[in-house]
Simulated scan of single mutants.
Amino acid sequence: MSSKDTKPPELAPVAPAEADEPTRVPLAIEDWLTVLIMAALALITFANVLVRYFTSSSFAWTEEFSVFLMIVLALVAGSGAVARDRHIRIEYFSDSGSMARRRGLACFGALMVALLFGLIAVLSVRVVWDDYRFGETSPGIGVPQWWYSMWMPIISLAIALRAFGLFMRRLRGVVPGASE
Protein backbone atom coordinates (compact mmCIF):
# COMPACT_ATOMS: atom_id res chain seq x y z
CA MET A 1 0.00 0.00 0.00
CA SER A 2 1.45 3.35 -0.98
CA SER A 3 1.23 6.57 0.92
CA LYS A 4 -1.06 7.92 -1.81
CA ASP A 5 -3.74 5.40 -0.87
CA THR A 6 -4.11 6.54 2.73
CA LYS A 7 -6.64 9.22 3.54
CA PRO A 8 -5.96 11.85 6.19
CA PRO A 9 -8.02 11.40 9.35
CA GLU A 10 -11.26 13.31 9.52
CA LEU A 11 -11.16 16.38 11.74
CA ALA A 12 -13.92 16.89 14.26
CA PRO A 13 -16.15 19.84 13.46
CA VAL A 14 -15.42 22.96 15.48
CA ALA A 15 -18.28 24.00 17.72
CA PRO A 16 -19.50 27.54 17.02
CA ALA A 17 -19.10 30.09 19.77
CA GLU A 18 -21.99 30.33 22.15
CA ALA A 19 -24.47 33.00 21.20
CA ASP A 20 -24.82 35.88 23.64
CA GLU A 21 -27.96 36.16 25.68
CA PRO A 22 -30.24 38.96 24.57
CA THR A 23 -29.78 42.14 26.60
CA ARG A 24 -31.58 45.47 26.55
CA VAL A 25 -28.36 47.39 25.95
CA PRO A 26 -26.41 45.87 23.04
CA LEU A 27 -23.21 44.05 23.94
CA ALA A 28 -21.70 45.53 20.80
CA ILE A 29 -21.01 48.70 22.82
CA GLU A 30 -18.34 46.96 24.90
CA ASP A 31 -17.08 45.04 21.88
CA TRP A 32 -16.54 48.16 19.78
CA LEU A 33 -15.07 50.15 22.65
CA THR A 34 -12.60 47.31 23.19
CA VAL A 35 -11.66 47.34 19.50
CA LEU A 36 -11.26 51.13 19.44
CA ILE A 37 -9.17 51.22 22.62
CA MET A 38 -6.93 48.39 21.39
CA ALA A 39 -6.49 50.19 18.06
CA ALA A 40 -5.62 53.44 19.83
CA LEU A 41 -3.09 51.63 22.02
CA ALA A 42 -1.49 49.98 18.99
CA LEU A 43 -1.32 53.25 17.03
CA ILE A 44 0.09 55.24 19.95
CA THR A 45 2.72 52.62 20.68
CA PHE A 46 3.65 52.22 17.01
CA ALA A 47 3.92 55.99 16.53
CA ASN A 48 6.11 56.27 19.61
CA VAL A 49 8.39 53.46 18.38
CA LEU A 50 8.76 55.15 14.99
CA VAL A 51 9.50 58.54 16.51
CA ARG A 52 12.02 57.03 18.92
CA TYR A 53 13.70 55.08 16.12
CA PHE A 54 14.07 58.03 13.77
CA THR A 55 14.68 60.86 16.24
CA SER A 56 16.14 59.21 19.39
CA SER A 57 13.42 60.88 21.46
CA SER A 58 9.85 59.93 22.23
CA PHE A 59 6.47 61.49 22.76
CA ALA A 60 6.17 62.38 26.44
CA TRP A 61 2.46 61.72 26.62
CA THR A 62 2.36 58.17 25.25
CA GLU A 63 3.20 56.25 28.44
CA GLU A 64 0.71 58.16 30.56
CA PHE A 65 -2.04 57.89 27.99
CA SER A 66 -1.29 54.20 27.33
CA VAL A 67 -1.63 53.37 31.03
CA PHE A 68 -4.95 55.22 31.11
CA LEU A 69 -6.18 53.34 28.04
CA MET A 70 -5.15 49.98 29.50
CA ILE A 71 -7.13 50.69 32.67
CA VAL A 72 -10.17 51.73 30.64
CA LEU A 73 -9.71 48.64 28.46
CA ALA A 74 -9.74 46.36 31.50
CA LEU A 75 -12.90 48.01 32.84
CA VAL A 76 -14.73 47.96 29.49
CA ALA A 77 -13.77 44.34 28.87
CA GLY A 78 -14.86 43.56 32.43
CA SER A 79 -18.24 45.07 31.67
CA GLY A 80 -18.60 42.81 28.64
CA ALA A 81 -17.52 39.79 30.68
CA VAL A 82 -20.09 40.54 33.38
CA ALA A 83 -22.87 41.04 30.82
CA ARG A 84 -21.96 37.71 29.18
CA ASP A 85 -21.69 35.99 32.58
CA ARG A 86 -18.05 35.14 31.95
CA HIS A 87 -16.66 36.48 35.22
CA ILE A 88 -14.42 34.37 37.43
CA ARG A 89 -16.04 31.69 39.53
CA ILE A 90 -15.19 28.31 40.96
CA GLU A 91 -17.06 26.01 38.59
CA TYR A 92 -16.95 23.12 41.00
CA PHE A 93 -19.41 25.04 43.17
CA SER A 94 -21.30 27.04 40.55
CA ASP A 95 -21.98 24.14 38.16
CA SER A 96 -22.78 21.40 40.65
CA GLY A 97 -25.89 20.65 42.62
CA SER A 98 -29.51 21.16 41.79
CA MET A 99 -30.81 23.66 39.28
CA ALA A 100 -32.20 25.79 42.12
CA ARG A 101 -28.77 25.87 43.78
CA ARG A 102 -27.03 26.84 40.53
CA ARG A 103 -29.60 29.53 39.86
CA GLY A 104 -29.26 30.84 43.43
CA LEU A 105 -25.47 30.98 43.16
CA ALA A 106 -25.71 32.73 39.78
CA CYS A 107 -28.08 35.32 41.24
CA PHE A 108 -25.89 35.78 44.33
CA GLY A 109 -22.73 36.21 42.24
CA ALA A 110 -24.34 38.75 39.91
CA LEU A 111 -25.79 40.69 42.82
CA MET A 112 -22.43 40.82 44.62
CA VAL A 113 -20.71 42.10 41.47
CA ALA A 114 -23.43 44.75 41.09
CA LEU A 115 -23.02 45.84 44.71
CA LEU A 116 -19.22 45.93 44.50
CA PHE A 117 -19.10 48.04 41.35
CA GLY A 118 -21.93 50.25 42.59
CA LEU A 119 -19.84 50.94 45.69
CA ILE A 120 -16.73 51.57 43.57
CA ALA A 121 -18.75 54.01 41.42
CA VAL A 122 -19.98 55.93 44.46
CA LEU A 123 -16.60 56.06 46.18
CA SER A 124 -14.70 56.99 43.02
CA VAL A 125 -16.90 60.06 42.56
CA ARG A 126 -15.15 61.38 45.66
CA VAL A 127 -11.76 60.78 44.02
CA VAL A 128 -12.85 62.68 40.92
CA TRP A 129 -14.20 65.52 43.04
CA ASP A 130 -10.95 65.73 45.02
CA ASP A 131 -8.90 65.72 41.80
CA TYR A 132 -11.03 68.56 40.46
CA ARG A 133 -11.24 70.55 43.71
CA PHE A 134 -7.52 70.44 44.48
CA GLY A 135 -6.44 71.00 40.88
CA GLU A 136 -4.42 67.78 40.67
CA THR A 137 -2.49 67.39 37.44
CA SER A 138 -1.15 64.26 35.82
CA PRO A 139 2.51 63.53 36.52
CA GLY A 140 3.61 63.10 32.91
CA ILE A 141 2.05 65.87 30.88
CA GLY A 142 0.31 68.02 33.45
CA VAL A 143 -3.30 67.78 32.29
CA PRO A 144 -6.03 67.84 34.95
CA GLN A 145 -6.09 64.46 36.69
CA TRP A 146 -9.88 64.35 36.70
CA TRP A 147 -9.80 63.91 32.92
CA TYR A 148 -8.50 60.42 33.65
CA SER A 149 -10.26 59.64 36.93
CA MET A 150 -13.75 60.64 35.79
CA TRP A 151 -14.04 57.42 33.79
CA MET A 152 -13.80 55.19 36.86
CA PRO A 153 -17.27 56.00 38.27
CA ILE A 154 -18.83 56.01 34.80
CA ILE A 155 -17.53 52.59 33.78
CA SER A 156 -18.02 51.16 37.28
CA LEU A 157 -21.66 52.22 37.12
CA ALA A 158 -21.95 50.56 33.71
CA ILE A 159 -20.52 47.33 35.14
CA ALA A 160 -22.91 47.53 38.10
CA LEU A 161 -25.85 47.99 35.74
CA ARG A 162 -24.67 45.09 33.55
CA ALA A 163 -24.37 42.91 36.66
CA PHE A 164 -27.82 43.95 37.85
CA GLY A 165 -29.21 43.10 34.42
CA LEU A 166 -27.55 39.68 34.67
CA PHE A 167 -29.05 39.28 38.16
CA MET A 168 -32.52 40.05 36.80
CA ARG A 169 -32.09 37.62 33.89
CA ARG A 170 -30.96 34.87 36.28
CA LEU A 171 -33.80 35.64 38.68
CA ARG A 172 -36.38 35.32 35.89
CA GLY A 173 -35.06 32.34 34.02
CA VAL A 174 -32.93 29.27 33.79
CA VAL A 175 -29.17 29.46 34.01
CA PRO A 176 -27.81 29.00 30.45
CA GLY A 177 -25.71 25.93 29.79
CA ALA A 178 -27.37 24.01 32.58
CA SER A 179 -29.00 20.75 31.61
CA GLU A 180 -31.52 19.04 33.85
Rank of each mutant, 00 (worst) to 15 (best):
F68K: 02
R52L: 06
I88L: 12
S94L: 00
L115R: 04
A81L: 12
A81E: 07
V125D: 04
R86L: 09
V25M: 06
V76F: 02
Y92F: 11
P9D: 08
V122L: 13
L105H: 02
L27M: 06
W61Y: 14
A60L: 14
A106C: 03
G165S: 12
A74H: 08
T23H: 12
L105P: 01
R84E: 08
L157G: 15
A15H: 01
A121W: 00
M150L: 14
D31R: 12
I120T: 06
T6E: 10
D95S: 11
G142Y: 02
S56M: 02
I120E: 04
L41K: 10
R84Y: 00
F65H: 03
D31Y: 06
L123D: 00
V122Y: 10
V113K: 09
H87V: 14
V128A: 05
L11P: 04
A163K: 02
A83G: 12
A12N: 13
A110D: 02
E63M: 05
L119V: 09
F68P: 01
S94H: 09
I141E: 01
I29N: 04
S156P: 05
E180A: 15
F108C: 10
L171W: 04
E30D: 15
A106M: 08
A100T: 11
H87I: 11
V143T: 04
R52S: 12
D85N: 10
V14E: 14
D130N: 05
R102D: 07
K4T: 11
L157Q: 03
N48I: 01
W32K: 05
A158V: 14
L119Q: 04
M70H: 08
